[in-house]
Amino acid sequence: MAMPILELRKLTKRFGNLMALREFDLDINQGELIGVIGPNGSGKTTLFNLISGYYRHFEGEIIYGGKRISGLRPDQIARKGIARVFQSYMLYEDTSVLENTTRCCYLRCETNSWQSFFNTSRYRKEEVNQRAEAEELLQPVGLAELRDSLAGKLPYGYCRLLGVAMALATNPTLLLLDEPMAGISHDEKGLVINLIKKLRDQGITVMLVEHDVKAVVDICPRLVVLDFGRKIADGRPEEVTTDRKVIEAYLGVEQG
């Protein structure tokens, strides 16, 4: 039995009286591709916000690679290998697509600020390499041709794809994808699905929050269903989609 890479222990997040997440437990194994689904407001994005450190005050514990990461800052968590693709529009809008990706290569840097300040040959070499790496990252998301475009002017779907490339620029071992397929065309959806499969093959653990249940069922061997901040199902897609509680959560239940 493989050791879980990510362990979530009794995660509870309150906003005033609202319990966005309650006593949420989950173990994720190395290399797993896990889909998180649930109706609107069921706590999916909150879950990501806790893991990535966006919210630092909550109850419960997050253990990543055997070490406790709850309470750390987002940059410390990113340094541990967790990258996140935001659900909303999250880019450096004032600069080019390529520069967006290059900026996210920060964690790949081996030279330090002093070397970069004095423009040493190692730093210059790294800059050239990093540019090439950034261009390479744009290839699989189909943005290579748009690399010089202004990120803020990209159509919505492309922003999501760019977000994925930017998250991958941090060399993650765990990727949190928050609705990467929302608002993109059918072709681009195929692109994202292929990319996710490729990442899984590379051994990157992927957590996928998605509204498109069909897409998730197709690619994720394991599904977790959230409703009102609770985990109501966890298992193989065919089990989960036939679960009565899941159907009730999605379709509602007749009163009386």
Binding site: A83, F86, M90, E93, T95, R103, Y106, L107, S113, T170
Partner: peptide, 29 residues
């Protein structure tokens, strides 16, 4: 000028442009 042209400048621009994103990409603000 050197600070601006080196990686520090890129980090400063990242922070100015989008703090939340910069922080999630590993930059200690």
């Amino acid at each position: 000028w050197r600070a601006d042209r080196s990686r520090l400048g890129r980090i400063f621009r990242s922070i100015a442009s989008n703090e939340t994103l910069a922080e999630h990409m590993g930059i200690h603000l």
